[in-house]
Design a binder for these strands. Structure first.
Lengths: 218, 218
DNA sequence: ATTACTAGTAGACGAGTAA
DNA sequence: TTTACTCGTCTACTAGTAA
């Protein structure tokens, strides 16, 4: 986000503009941002232009609400602060084992991915993934991890089908090296795929619904 | 903080410049901030001027570390995000009862404060305060509360002695109305004073070391 | 390589004001 | 009262370059 916009957007969020429309005149916003009415008005137009806010321009006072895109941008900054003040380089994500449905297996086994896993992660994954549904209270941690670089596994095209970029983060489950894999572009992930050179379900005796903890490095 | 500085300061924090000196050239910082080497250099000089960072300008590459003042500024922004995303208007602060040492009693009993407590909070405090040492894991919540307005109780001078501004936040302990009181200007508070129209120690049967929870509104 | 000066320029800002 | 246009000023930026 243009840094320019974050200050105004944050002030609007503090006024409650994430949850609902907030009535605020350009003069009031200007005062809050320590700038003129004219500049605040311009800033509002810019935020509208960037689709960070929507506005209901009534007869008397405009009412402003932050869009999901705006919230997204604020969360990015929030996550940066969480990385600074809360989280070290290793984070424990809790969740429960879920059924794989064979999807993960199909993807992971693509040699286009396999080659990269082997060279970047240092192991060749067992053919198939362990799916884990992340506990809601740890969803934020996942956001923070996803805001970091991780190991980019490039997408490719094979037999006319295209496979997208994914990001792998090295991790450990009960001291066994593994990695969590998430698609590069996609939000609101509550399920992660875990790859490992061993068959984790068998090795660790896991079933659907088993609680597990993954320690992720980033 | 000038909003202008927060972006650069945050990037430096993400690079680890809170914990230790970080080697970063003005060109690298410029790339990270999407600005020219020259502008990044100027920004660094400004941050130095504002005492947000200190620098060790070696022969090859400068090494930068964020000062406590700089960390303070970053925390302010972090706390704004916490208010946006984490905390509702009521927060539970946990801690243990500590000895008052008579200090609180002396201050609170000043009529200059008493009058204001009565008109602003709606009750006349029992003469004396309950001291509470806040659990370390709730210290951050206290920071967030302190970053909000609260009820300003103005300082005054009496018998040649000056009493500073304090902020009161309405609160409840086990459903009894009370308020927590903190000095306006002072950082790193881990002890709060609780005022109430009743004698809380007697009413709730508290002793030094008793665990209590205060629900603070802000 | 660095950092950081000077100079020129683009863009952000506020005053005045229209709607 | 609002919002937001135009326009002049002034700041913040980058390019060139010195140390």
């Amino acid at each position: 986000m243009g840094n320019k916009y974050s200050f105004a957007l944050r002030k609007l969020a503090l006024l409650g503009a994430i949850d609902d429309y907030v009535a605020i005149s350009s003069r009031e916003l200007g005062t809050a941002l320590e700038m003129s009415q004219q500049s605040a008005s311009k800033r509002i137009l810019e935020l509208l232009d960037e689709k960070y806010i929507v506005r209901d321009l009534g007869a008397r006072r405009q009412r402003i609400k932050i869009t999901p895109k705006g919230v997204e941008e604020l969360k990015k900054e929030y996550n940066e602060y969480r990385r600074i003040f809360e989280l070290s380089d290793q984070v424990t994500i809790r969740g429960v084992v879920a059924s794989g449905m064979g999807e993960g297996h199909y993807y992971i086994c693509q040699e286009g991915y396999m080659k990269q896993f082997e060279s970047i992660l240092g192991f060749r994954p067992f053919e198939g993934t362990l799916n884990m549904v992340v506990d809601p209270e740890d969803a934020g941690k996942l956001d923070v991890i996803r805001s970091t670089d991780g190991n980019l596994i490039s997408g490719f095209t094979c037999d006319g089908r295209s496979f997208g970029d994914v990001i792998a983060y090295k991790a450990k489950i009960r001291n066994i090296d593994c990695a969590i894999v998430v698609p590069e572009r996609s939000h609101y992930v509550d399920t992660i795929e875990i790859i490992c050179q061993f068959h984790l379900r068998r090795t660790l005796g896991l079933n659907d619904g088993s609680k597990i903890e993954v320690k992720v490095n980033f």
